[in-house]
């Protein structure tokens, strides 16, 4: 067991953990942060995406011990004082989710994407979210939601783009 101390969604926490414990397991099983979910076991799906010291990471791909001394933000810490984060609001507004399982990761990745590039093109959004899988939406409205969040929405539901299949 290794002792770790970190800040999760603004709260200081400390625990003894097995060195093999993944950050996502720590969040879900020890802290009850079940808003962050596990969708695969090969770090392909991105459903477990959180922010580690401000950078998006797949929390199934980080050991809990690696987060020692870090600041972690999960989907549960994104809204402030009951106010949704603009990206959360945009996903709701643009119907960027259906079953909602990929949504926590998708939103966390979108927030990180917009932090790095506040005015992304459609292609930049598509490349920036490539590591997050969604099976419901066909991505159309997810891309739209990110555009909406950064104020770049054209208001059209009928955007097209040539992409490589």
């Amino acid at each position: 067991m290794t002792r770790i101390s970190l800040t999760v969604d603004g709260a200081k926490v400390a625990d003894d953990v097995e060195p093999r414990m993944l950050l996502v397991q720590y969040l879900r099983e020890r802290l009850g942060k079940t808003g962050t979910v596990v969708g695969c076991d090969t770090s392909n799906c991105g459903a477990c995406t959180v922010h580690l010291d401000g950078t998006s990471v797949k929390s199934c791909n980080v050991l809990a011990v690696q987060a020692d001394g870090c600041e972690v933000t999960t989907i549960e810490g994104l809204a402030q004082d009951g106010e949704l984060h603009p990206v959360q609001e945009a996903f709701r507004e643009c119907h960027g989710l259906q079953c909602g399982f990929c949504t926590p990761g998708m939103i966390m990745q979108s927030v990180a994407l917009l932090k790095d590039n506040p005015n992304p093109s459609e292609e930049e959004i598509r490349l920036g979210l490539e590591g997050n899988l969604c099976r419901c939406t066909g991505y159309h409205n997810i891309v739209k939601a990110v555009q909406h969040a950064c104020g770049a929405s054209t208001g059209s539901t009928n955007q097209t783009a040539g992409v490589t299949a």
């Binding site: 090969t42 598509r126 490539e130 097209t160 992409v163 490589t164």
Partner: peptide, 19 residues
């Protein structure tokens, strides 16, 4: 038998649609 091998499309593979 994993998402590394079973090719689920991503944002980068798809496009927006006219519906």
């Amino acid at each position: 038998g994993s998402f590394t091998d079973y090719l689920l499309p991503t944002t980068a593979d798809t496009l927006s649609f006219e519906v």
